[in-house]
């Protein structure tokens, strides 16, 4: 199958790359890992993703979401429980989703067209953060949290297994 030839690597540096890089570096800075290692790790992760995204080889390009996501996930495990670092983590997650929409191999304006998706992700992150830190809290047991998480995973598994639920009407199956 033919596809339009890809842009050079430099076009992979879209407007969301600075946001993602700033978020990843900030999370690295506030994490418990020594700053040098953390910042280098975040930079390598984001940089590798950006370079892979600009690769002409389709196989390489398919792997572009992994390094940045891996770096962010690893860094998030070492972020302390404090309002500002956790807000940075939440915002960086939303920035990552926005960065996915900014695809250099597709027509320009993906960030604007995908605004509904990343803004939902951003809203959810901010709500989760504010629920954790701004609302009056009580000592919630780990069991309740685990039950909520298990329920979420169950709902998620159901959604993934039934993509037809997202069809408004029956698709034409000629």
């Amino acid at each position: 199958m033919s596809e339009p030839l890809g842009p050079p690597v430099r076009l992979a540096f879209g407007p969301t790359v600075p946001a993602l890089a700033a978020g990843a570096l900030s999370v690295a800075y506030v994490s418990a890992i020594p700053p040098l290692y953390a910042i280098v790790g975040a930079g390598v992760g984001v940089g590798a993703s950006v370079l892979l995204r600009g690769a002409r080889s389709e196989e390489l390009r398919a792997a572009f979401p992994l390094p940045a996501l891996g770096a962010l996930s690893a860094l998030s495990l070492f972020v302390g429980v404090a309002a500002f670092p956790l807000l940075l983590v939440a915002l960086t997650g939303a920035a990552y989703v926005a960065w996915l929409a900014d695809d250099p191999f597709r027509p320009a304006g993906g960030l604007a067209r995908g605004a509904s998706v990343w803004s939902v992700a951003l809203l959810g992150s901010v709500l989760a953060w504010s629920a954790g830190f701004l609302l009056p809290a009580s000592a919630a047991s780990l069991g309740v949290a685990a039950a909520l998480a298990a329920g979420s995973v169950g709902i998620l598994a159901y959604l993934v297994s039934r993509p037809d639920l997202f069809d408004h009407d029956a698709a034409a199956t000629i």
Binding site: V81, L86, G93, L100, S116, W118, A121, S125, F166, A171
Partner: peptide, 27 residues
């Protein structure tokens, strides 16, 4: 018992579901 990974997981869970619900509902 760390909320940071949970906060990072929230946008990752929400984005695909939002993309599915906000796109066209039929071919």
């Amino acid at each position: 018992r760390d909320p940071a990974p949970l906060l990072l997981a929230v946008p990752l869970f929400l984005a695909p579901v939002a993309a599915a619900l906000l796109g066209p509902r039929s071919p």
